[in-house]
Amino acid sequence: MEIREQLSDKLLDNTSQKCILNIEIYKERALAYAQIESAVCVLSDMQENKSYIYKSAAAEELGLSKSENPTEIDSIWEEEMLKKIHPDDRLKKYIHELRFFRLLDAMKMTERTAYSVVSKIRMKDKNDQYRWVKHRMFYIYSPNNGRLRLALCLYNIALTSSHAPDFMIINAVKGKVVVKDKLDYKSILSPRELEVLKFVGEGYSSKEIAGLLSISINTVSRHRQNILEKLKVKNSTQAFKDSFY
C-alpha cells in the first residue's frame, strides 16, 4: 500500500548515529500498560525494525493468539493486529499516523511529549464480528539524534461507539484537541462515493477503480465529479486529503 510505504520510509531510522535510549525500561512500561488497562500494547522499535506485543485478557476477546508475552516480531507492523482492523479504518490509521509524524516532526523536541493520537477503529473479535476499539499512540524520540525511536500503541475494547471524532491529536498537558477530522464525510458522500474516494487515496486510476467496483469508467468519472462538488474541492486527491488530513 502506498500510504504504508510512505509511513515506513518516515518511521524507520536508518541513520548511523544510534539512539541511546534503554529500551528495556520501555518494555517494562508497555507490560504495565497492558496489565493495568486490560489492553493489547504494541511497542515498536524504529531503529531495529522490531515490535514487542504485550497481551492481556482482552487479546482473547479479539481472537488474538496468546503465546509468549511479549511476542517479538521482526517488523514495526503488527500484522496479526492489523489484519483484524476494518479495511477502511486500517487505511485511515496509516494516513493519520503519517499526519501525526509530520506534525511532531515540525515541533521542537521539548514540545513533542505532550501529544498523542486517540482514535476509534473497528476490529474483528473472537466471533469474527467487528467491535469498536479505542486506539492510542505515543511517540518516543531519541534524545541524542532527535529521531523517532519508539511508538507505543494501546488497543482497548470500547464500551460503545461514541460520537467523538474518529481521529484526534490531543495535547494532554493543556487538555485540548489539536487536530480532528475536518469533514463528516460519511454523512456527505454516498457509500459508493466513499468507496471511490478510498481507492483514489490508494492511488488507483479511474480505469482500475472501475474494474475493482465492476462499474464503467463513465460511472467512476461521475462519482468523482460528485465528490468534488459535494466537498467543494478542486480534485479527488485533494478531497481525500481534506477528508482524512
Results as ranks from 00 to 15, higher is better:
Leu31Trp: 07
Lys241Thr: 00
Asp125Asn: 07
Leu98Phe: 06
Asp74Ala: 11
Met137Lys: 11
Asp242Gln: 13
Thr113Arg: 15
Val233Asp: 02
Asp125Cys: 04
Glu5His: 13
Val40Ala: 10
His86Met: 07
Lys108Ile: 14
Ala39Asn: 01
Ser236His: 00
Lys186Ala: 11
Lys186Ile: 06
Glu208Thr: 10
Thr71Arg: 14
Lys84Gly: 03
Phe244Asp: 01
Tyr139Ile: 11
Lys232Pro: 12
His135Asp: 00
Tyr26Ile: 10
Met137Val: 13
Tyr155Ile: 08
Ser67Cys: 10
Glu78Thr: 12
Gly175Val: 10
Val40Phe: 04
Gln129Ile: 04
Asn22Phe: 11
Lys174Ile: 15
His223Asp: 02
Met123Ile: 08
Leu21Cys: 13
Ala239Gly: 13
Leu231Met: 07
Lys198Thr: 03
Tyr26Leu: 13
Pro70Gly: 09
Ile36Met: 02
Ser206Met: 01
Ala239Ile: 02
His135Pro: 02
Ser75Ile: 09
Leu197Ala: 06
Met1Val: 15
Leu7Phe: 11
Leu148Pro: 05
Lys18Met: 02
Leu12Val: 15
Ile170Phe: 04
Ser44Ala: 06
His86Gly: 08
Leu159Gly: 01
Glu68Trp: 03
Arg131Asn: 00
Met168Phe: 05
Tyr52Pro: 06
Arg4Gln: 15
Leu98Glu: 03
Met107Val: 05
Leu64Tyr: 13
